[in-house]
Design a binder for these strands. Structure first.
Length: 202
DNA sequence: CTCTCGATGCGCT
DNA sequence: GCGCATCGAGAGA
């Protein structure tokens, strides 16, 4: 069957271009023989060692080492003592750049995602809460540090073609949750989507 | 809806 | 020790 998987040359492009292009693509996770998937509706670009908000500012020997590796690989890190964030490495090796995937519209495997997201005996979470944040989508898709450095051309975790998105449907804003670097409009989101993590004008 | 705050592990200075 | 590319609960409006 024809694969709609995104290829390495796409990831090797300039990071801002990749961040914008990934809006509307489908993120797929294969686990236990099942497919979990969602349409990417929010991304952020991390622009390399000179970007004051990027982990890669600490250099190639830091935990951000995967950002200096080949494009089309995963950089997954653990933060706030309890959450993971998933990034796609971009540009040629040595760049220290990546795109953070911040939110998805869940499309396949919602029941299993909900099980991954359910913590205690509290009320069942809504579809809307499943993947509308970087930590939430990692929990829903069972993405953790064991998948750091995974090749996104593998059969465990990958991106493929999704929905058609026109340039006018993509909005930009400052990146979320950073102290420095707010002056750059390096967050991209699908304007119509109710699955983004925060509303415009952040 | 908005805001505030605590949880909790660890990389880095 | 400090400070996180976060989340969810609780309070108030």
């Amino acid at each position: 069957m024809a694969s709609r998987k995104l290829t390495r040359p796409l990831y090797a492009q300039p990071t801002l271009k990749v961040a914008r292009q990934l809006i509307g693509k489908r993120l797929v996770r294969r686990i236990g023989g099942r497919r979990l998937a969602g349409i990417i509706v929010e991304t952020e670009a991390y622009m390399g060692p000179t970007d004051v908000a990027s982990h890669s500012r600490h250099g190639e020997q830091s935990r951000a080492a995967p950002m200096f590796g080949k494009p089309g690989y995963a950089y997954i890190y653990f933060t706030y003592g309890m959450h993971h964030c998933f990034n796609v490495v971009t540009e040629p090796p040595g760049s220290g750049t990546a795109v953070l995937i911040r939110a998805l519209e869940p499309t396949e495997g919602l029941a299993l995602m909900r099980r991954h997201r359910q913590t205690g005996n509290e009320r069942e979470i809504t579809d809307h809460e499943l993947t509308n944040g970087p930590g939430k989508l990692c929990q829903a898709l069972a993405l953790d540090r064991t998948l750091n450095r995974t090749d996104l051309l593998s059969n465990v975790l990958w991106l493929e073609e999704g929905i058609k998105v026109h340039p006018g449907q993509v909005g930009t804003s400052a990146r979320v949750g950073i102290r420095e670097g707010r002056e750059h409009p390096w967050r991209f989101y699908l304007k119509d989507s109710r699955f983004i993590s925060r509303h415009p004008n952040y």
